[in-house]
Design a protein around this nucleic acid. Structure first.
Length: 279
RNA sequence: GGUCCUGUGGCCGAGUGGUCAGGCAGAGCUCUGCAAAAGCUUCCACAGCGGUUCGAAUCCGCUCGGGACCU
């Protein structure tokens, strides 16, 4: 069983992962699992830099157009989906290729996530609603009273994480930190990582160019059509949220495009930081 | 030619004698169920020269650069 190998191609956005992965897949005559948290949504096209139709025709892809923006997609969902996908690929191949820039998803696939019991949706909703009204100080104070462990060693400045920590605590009675033991699961196949990188200046140039290409390809129109879904998690995406602001009249189109470029550069930088540490 | 205004870090922008502005960009970082998310840290100034003062980005003078007005 250990003669199976998954080659994971990672790197910042716009480094050229897609074509590299396709070359690899063709070479091994195998299939690709995308590890991209946005390209899985079939409603999103231009803005997520999905592989071209020709590329998708040349190699079968998993986790591309596989979900809807109505679906609940997250790292855990991906982990399970991707593990199922590799096994399917391994039925006929010794090699599978994964490619993507969503570091957490790749980590979940490679090492697994600690088991945290499902949380009560009602509790979660209630907490989120109160947070919106009362803000971070309220959240910090509640955690201080309910989950001293998290209060002392959790990310108390980070609302997103703190919100989840509180939801877990109130749902299970235990601190999320008690579940997060950091156990690394050893998969029953080999993993080979290929990390692609470019000099920062060149990467930024490619990003800027790609955004211009997206605009020429009709990103504005696509975003207009998706405007009604702007609050969906899937639409909290660089390339769309800036145009939504433009539609709202908060940004000129030109400024919105500049924002997209800037935010994509920020995103790329975070990816570099992540992969540098993780790999 | 004269009069008045003005000159803060890559950009925007406060400060007006004696802690730090701040924001953006840039850089660095964190990271286990929203991750193209969320959060944290941080370099670079006071146009130049001289003077007043214990002490000047802050007051005075000159130089240079901008801007406005003037019969």
């Amino acid at each position: 069983m250990t003669n199976k190998t998954c080659i994971i191609v990672s790197g910042a956005t716009a480094v050229g992962k897609t074509s590299h992965a396709i070359d690899l897949a063709l070479k091994y005559n195998t299939q690709i699992i995308s590890a991209d948290s946005r390209q899985c949504y079939r409603e999103l096209n231009i803005g997520v830099a999905r592989p071209s139709a020709e590329q998708l025709d040349s190699v079968p892809h998993y986790f591309i157009n596989s979900h809807s923006i109505y679906d609940d997609v997250n790292a855990k969902v991906f982990e399970q989906y991707a593990l199922d996908a590799v096994q399917k690929i391994f039925e006929n191949n010794d090699v599978a290729v994964m490619v993507g820039g969503t570091g957490l998803y790749i980590k979940a696939f490679s090492e697994g996530l600690d088991e945290v019991p499902a949380i009560d949706e009602n509790i979660r909703t209630e907490i989120n609603e109160t947070y919106k009204i009362e803000g971070l100080p309220w959240l910090q104070n509640v955690i201080k009273n309910h989950d001293p462990l998290y209060f002392s060693s959790g990310e108390m400045q980070n609302p997103q994480r703190s919100l989840r920590a509180l939801a877990v605590k109130l749902s299970t009675g235990k601190s999320i930190l008690d579940f997060q033991v950091g156990k690394k699961i050893k998969r029953n196949f080999e993993i080979k990582n290929i990390y692609l990188e470019l000099p920062r200046s060149e990467l930024y140039k490619r990003i800027n160019n790609r955004v211009d290409e997206m605009m020429n390809a009709g990103l504005l129109q696509e975003a207009e059509n998706l405007f009604q879904y702007r609050h969906f998690n899937a639409l909290q995406t660089v390339g769309y949220k800036e145009i939504f602001e433009h539609i709202d009249g908060k940004l000129s189109l030109h400024d919105a495009v500049e924002e997209i470029k800037k935010n994509t550069r920020h995103f790329a930088k975070r990816q570099v930081t992540w992969f540098k540490k993780f790999l």
